[in-house]
Design a protein around this nucleic acid. Structure first.
Lengths: 418, 418
DNA sequence: ACCCATTTGTCGTGGCGCAGCACAAACTAG
DNA sequence: CTAGTTTGTGCTGCGCCACGACAAATGGGT
């Protein structure tokens, strides 16, 4: 049984909607299961071959798919493979973080087309100045696209903080020390209206980057992102869980140790006081240790901790086990509440995660009521600090997969082969 | 922009799907916003009046709506009001709990058509015997419907424990002391295949009962259910959040006090050790107090506590404040993670909730990072122990709202007025 | 009492999109 | 080289909604 989704403001469906739906269905099938012939598409979608042919024809006219090689079967006429074509459009992602601003462009096939990053201490600049830099980066990215003849289809901006998506405001960003910033408006002023701009919470975008569309086993994902602060994002049934006001995913301030240490937010016993980067460094090293030297890059400090752990240094191992235990405790609470397929550790958690994993998994197994921890796996992110921009670019692309008619038909190039 | 929802196994959309969608759209609009004329429906859905007319005609032929009174406007021809008709179909809900089995039937308008309950100590019977009793109750309920000429459209069974929805099994039910029970199959054997039977987690159903379809402010709801054990359910964007294996909502075993008391599940410091009914009774009364007498009904014991609290008994008030504080702590953690519009207290929490509310709300405000607790309200459920069956019946009805063509056309009654 | 503006509901026509069917094209097996 | 199989593309038909026209039903003004 199928229905249109009825969550948006109710607006009826007509023939055009039907077309849009089926175009999107074909496009998503090609994304999720790879290139295949029109006949196979028809069989898998339960349509006739003729209907699929016209759909593929329209997608081709919009530059979204192209006809590829022949597909030989056992017997019979070979089919012509249809595959996603990344040369028409790309989705843009951008991020405003405390330490950097960055952008990424993904084409329809998920390939990175362009990537830019600028280290930047957000505290040292005004909001306007930071967004100026970000806009510069976005312009560089779109210039890369223009050079290749690719159209930017949308920009999704991830910011560290609480986002009001409807207005496109960052309402509360304690780490950036921003408050009530109309990010959407400020960026539109700088970048124009050539493509839609969406503002999202960084954690949600990172979580989306870890979820894989179409893969049933990667539709319910929880991302835990550790730096000095701890945040995250939730993807449930393939969709970001934002909550009523878009504030979901603020895991760092769950209170896990009521008699514990004071947190930067003013409360006592927040989860990030025991699993944040500072907690690990406090446990693993004396104040004069090099790994606590602010002048040293965080990556290098984490590498040094990994080196010590690999050499069997007990203090380091104990510290990692202790933080891992706390991490596992919180992970277990979230797993009891949400039963995700995977909890993905990102940020510094990923960097030293291999050594924390035993402690985390043991606490998770012990702490989750469902047998076998409800099937929740612990994974280390491989996306590093690009998770949010990647998720943003992916979210921008979703518009095309939901409605391929949002991409214009291209002029009929007479015998154009490339 | 609209699309078909693409989460189910991909299957393409045709004209019939289009019709189904628009029929459902009309039906849901009538449910969510009440009776209105065809012309108003057309304006709100962005369709033509003629299209709406045929849709309403078809819904009428299926007995789902009926033509009501005239609707006078300021000027012009008055419209005829179209409204949901509850006389054709009803959704069934059922529940297997430790202390009772129960059923409920809701008609399309949400009215209770039939309700049955049987007190029953599940531990004293075999699985088969308990389901025999439940099946009896369901048969009584459908008999009530048949007497009125109403068709049962589906049955949703809520069970206390972890449910594998695809197979319809209760995989793990510690409170019932059931394990790997093929509930779906056992009930189908007893009730036949006249209507589809679905098995769901009790907490999810209770949460669905608290959420209101169509109301934007009641689409993200968290239900906390307190008895001896503590459970709950999550509704996000109007849909139950079940997690990868359907185990989401097991809040009672989140570990909040690592050095605390041992829980019935074998772990230490589970939330239910500090907010479960036993914790409240331990704090509020000496062992020989009447409110701890197992012979006394729980409702009466709670009423006695409420009475003492209202009279200003400090020990009772302190106990409620302390449990309320722990309740608020857990609520804050969940609110940080999920940012619901409302946290609904159910079970015994609702019974004594008025006296715990100040403590809960204070902890919630303090413990949630988002300003003003992210807009999360604390509410007391008024549904009592019927929440799960009501949610189940509502979920059964959802099939009709999603696809009205699943209800058969009725024979054309020649001028049958009644 | 009558006319007019306004709104409602219905009917007929047209366009669009998919299903069903027929058919040519392209291949394998023997 | 033929038979059998599979693929992709026309063509026709049907269902559904948009659009426009029209009759029906009302209130307000004269």
């Amino acid at each position: 049984m199928r229905t249109f989704d009825g969550d948006e403001t109710s607006s009826s469906a007509d023939q055009l909607t039907l077309r849009r739906t089926n175009l999107g269905l074909v496009l998503r099938l090609l994304r999720d299961r790879g290139p295949r012939s029109r006949a196979k598409l028809a069989a898998e979608l339960g349509m006739t071959r003729s209907a699929v042919s016209t759909l593929v024809g329209e997608l081709e006219a919009r530059g979204l798919v192209r006809i590829g090689d022949l597909e030989r079967g056992a017997v019979g006429r070979p089919g012509t493979s249809v595959q996603l074509d990344g040369h028409a459009v790309a989705g843009l992602g951008a991020e405003v973080n405390v330490n950097h601003v960055s952008t990424m462009a993904l084409d329809l096939t998920g390939e990175v087309v362009s990537e830019h990053k600028l280290a930047l201490d957000a505290h040292a600049f005004t909001v306007e100045a930071v967004l100026d830099r970000l806009a510069d980066l976005v312009r560089q990215t779109t210039a890369d696209l223009t050079r290749r003849g690719i159209d930017p289809i949308g920009l999704t901006v991830g910011v560290a903080g609480l986002v009001d998506r409807e207005r496109g405001w960052l309402t509360f960003g304690p780490n950036l020390d921003w408050q009530d910033v109309p990010v959407h408006e400020l960026l539109r002023d700088r970048l124009g209206e050539a493509y839609p701009i969406t503002v999202e919470n960084e954690g949600n975008l990172a979580a989306l980057a870890e979820a894989t569309p179409g893969d049933r086993d990667r539709q319910d994902v929880l991302v835990l992102f550790g730096e000095v602060g701890v945040g995250g994002g939730i993807v449930a049934e393939g969709r970001p869980l934002r909550g009523r006001q878009g504030y979901a995913g603020e895991f760092g301030h769950m209170i896990v140790e009521p008699q514990g240490r004071r947190c930067g937010c003013g409360r006592v016993g927040c989860w990030e006081t025991v699993v944040g980067l500072r907690a690990l460094l406090d446990l693993a090293a004396d104040p004069d240790d090099q790994v606590r030297d602010p002048a040293m890059a965080i990556d290098e400090r984490l590498a040094e901790l990994n080196r010590r752990a690999s050499l069997g240094d007990t203090r380091t191992l104990d510290a990692l086990a202790q933080v891992g235990g706390w991490l596992g405790l919180g992970a277990a609470m979230l797993a009891n509440a949400l039963n995700p397929a995977a909890i993905v550790l990102s940020g510094y958690f990923a960097a030293v995660g291999e050594h924390m994993r035993p402690a985390i998994e043991s606490r998770l197994r012990d702490g989750v009521l469902a047998p076998d921890a409800g099937g929740t796996r612990v994974e280390l992110s491989t996306l590093g600090f690009t998770a949010a921009v990647r998720g943003g670019a992916g979210l921008s692309l979703d518009r095309v997969f939901a409605d391929p008619t949002s991409v214009e038909r291209r002029p009929v190039a007479a015998g154009a082969t490339r």
